[in-house]
Simulated assay, not measured.
Amino acid sequence: MKKLAHRIPWWLVVLIAGAALIVLGIAQGDFQDTMRKAALVCYECIGIG
């Protein structure tokens, strides 16, 4: 009889990889850069900046 190997679902692997990349980006300060750029674009769209 074959033993069934424990398989990790593909969605769990993708979820863990995504969470790790988000944490890595926040740790490097990319979140602040992204928010600053988004705010500048938004201000330009409504004519403030």
Rank of each mutant, 00 (worst) to 15 (best):
V13D: 11
G25Q: 05
V41L: 14
A39M: 08
Q28C: 10
V14T: 09
Y43Q: 15
I16S: 08
C45I: 13
A17Q: 05
H6S: 13
V13A: 09
L15V: 08
G18A: 06
I8K: 09
W10R: 12
I8E: 09
G25L: 04
A39Q: 11
E44R: 11
K3Q: 13
R36D: 08
T34M: 09
L21E: 01
W10P: 13
A39V: 09
M35W: 06
L21G: 00
A27S: 13
R36P: 03
G29S: 03
V41D: 13
G18M: 03
G18I: 01
K2N: 14
L21P: 00
A27M: 04
I16E: 03
T34G: 06
A20R: 01
D30M: 15
A17L: 03
P9L: 06
Q28L: 13
K2H: 15
K2M: 14
I8A: 11
L40S: 08
D30C: 11
I46Q: 00
A39K: 10
L15P: 00
K3S: 14
A20I: 01
Q32D: 12
I22P: 00
I8H: 08
L12M: 10
A38E: 10
M1F: 14
L12P: 04
L40R: 11
G49T: 04
K2Y: 14
G25H: 00
V13H: 07
W10F: 10
L21R: 02
Q32W: 10
E44C: 07
P9F: 02
L12I: 09
C42D: 14
G25I: 01
G18D: 01
Y43W: 13
C42E: 15
I22Q: 03
L40Y: 10
C45K: 10
I26N: 03
W10L: 11
C42S: 15
I16R: 06
V13P: 00
H6Y: 11
V23G: 03
G47C: 04
W11K: 05
A20L: 03
G18F: 03
V23R: 01
V23D: 02
A20P: 05
C45N: 12
A20S: 06
K2S: 15
A38S: 05
A27T: 01
D33A: 06
A17S: 08
L15D: 07
L24Y: 05
G49V: 10
Q32V: 07
I8S: 05
Y43C: 12
Q32S: 10
M1V: 15
I46S: 00
K2W: 15
I22R: 00
K37L: 13
R7W: 12
W10E: 09
G47A: 02
G18Y: 00
P9H: 06
V41F: 13
A17Y: 05
W11I: 03
R36G: 02
R7L: 13
M35K: 08
E44A: 12
Y43E: 14
I46T: 09
K37H: 12
F31H: 04
I26F: 05
G18W: 03
G29N: 04
A39E: 09
I46K: 03
K3E: 13
G25A: 04
D33K: 07
D30E: 15
T34F: 07
C45A: 14
Y43V: 12
